[in-house]
Simulated assay, not measured.
Amino acid sequence: MQALLKLSSLIDALTERVGKAIIWLVLVVTLIAAGNAVMRYTLNYSSNAFLEIQWYLFSAIFLLGAGYTLMRNEHVRIDLIAGRMSRRGQAWIDIFGIIFFLLPMAVAVMYLSWPIFLLALNNNEQSSNAGGLAVWPVRLLVPIGFFLLVIQGVSELIKRFGFLQGLCPDPTAKGHKPTPEEELALAIKAQKGEL
């Protein structure tokens, strides 16, 4: 079990790095949207590429951030039953949900989205909008995002079993963690300090 817990912490470290990088995409999308609006109203110029890159980045934030959200236990839950159970009971519900719902769904989407990406790449699929972007990069986000979700699901499964065996703390315990907005503000302050 100790080897599995080490694997889980490696997965968590990867997920943490991806999550921290995604936080910056929120700032990039905001700047692109603001720049597009300013150009549209001051220079009477706009481009479909600006709109599409925003959509692509929103997709990246959502798809690549799913594992990070799961790791931080910030995903949507319906605690009608689980909220009344002990921590051990909640861990068993999580194990059941991960094994029978999360992993099968995420593996299926990852598997089924790969040929769609390959077809888009091989055909050099382009947006149907004038001045639009290539489509294959955003199609690649689907299998990558679901792969990250699958490995984080495995990590969460390992942590739940570790908790049940008394080998690690409760992975669902909520300590004070900064919100994504607070993390972005801290990252910006750290960047300013480095300059």
Results as ranks from 00 to 15, higher is better:
residue 23 I to W: 04
residue 84 R to W: 11
residue 28 V to P: 11
residue 125 E to R: 15
residue 74 E to N: 01
residue 104 P to L: 12
residue 130 A to K: 15
residue 84 R to I: 13
residue 30 T to I: 13
residue 38 V to F: 08
residue 25 L to D: 03
residue 127 S to Y: 10
residue 150 V to M: 12
residue 73 N to H: 14
residue 32 I to C: 08
residue 148 L to T: 06
residue 108 A to F: 14
residue 28 V to A: 04
residue 80 L to E: 06
residue 123 N to M: 01
residue 25 L to Y: 03
residue 108 A to G: 07
residue 122 N to D: 07
residue 16 E to F: 12
residue 49 A to Q: 05
residue 102 L to H: 08
residue 133 L to S: 14
residue 52 E to G: 06
residue 131 G to R: 11
residue 130 A to Q: 03
residue 73 N to Y: 12
residue 79 D to R: 07
residue 53 I to G: 07
residue 119 L to I: 14
residue 103 L to D: 12
residue 73 N to C: 10
residue 88 R to N: 01
residue 78 I to H: 07
residue 75 H to R: 06
residue 98 I to D: 02
residue 142 V to F: 04
residue 131 G to C: 15
residue 136 W to L: 05
residue 112 L to E: 14
residue 71 M to G: 04
residue 44 N to F: 14
residue 63 L to V: 10
residue 128 S to N: 15
residue 17 R to C: 04
residue 56 Y to M: 00
residue 104 P to R: 11
residue 150 V to H: 10
residue 134 A to M: 15
residue 99 I to G: 13
residue 150 V to C: 03
residue 71 M to H: 05
residue 109 V to K: 03
residue 101 F to M: 11
residue 91 A to I: 10
residue 131 G to P: 15
residue 49 A to T: 11
residue 106 A to H: 05
residue 34 A to P: 03
residue 147 F to L: 11
residue 145 G to C: 05
residue 129 N to R: 09
residue 72 R to Q: 08
residue 111 Y to N: 05
residue 93 I to E: 07
residue 136 W to M: 03
residue 104 P to W: 13
residue 132 G to C: 06
residue 40 R to I: 00
residue 150 V to D: 12
residue 118 L to S: 08
residue 127 S to Q: 10
residue 86 S to E: 08
residue 98 I to N: 03
residue 60 A to W: 02
residue 77 R to Q: 01
residue 104 P to E: 09
residue 126 Q to F: 03
residue 99 I to P: 12
residue 150 V to P: 04
residue 139 R to I: 00
residue 45 Y to R: 08
residue 44 N to K: 12
residue 20 K to W: 02
residue 120 A to P: 12
residue 22 I to Q: 02
residue 149 L to E: 02
residue 75 H to P: 02
residue 92 W to D: 03
residue 22 I to V: 02
residue 147 F to C: 05
residue 26 V to C: 04
residue 112 L to W: 00
residue 44 N to G: 00
residue 128 S to H: 14
residue 148 L to M: 09
residue 22 I to S: 05
residue 140 L to W: 07
residue 140 L to Q: 04
residue 105 M to F: 15
residue 91 A to M: 03
residue 121 L to E: 15
residue 53 I to D: 10
residue 73 N to G: 15
residue 95 I to H: 08
residue 51 L to W: 03
residue 18 V to L: 09
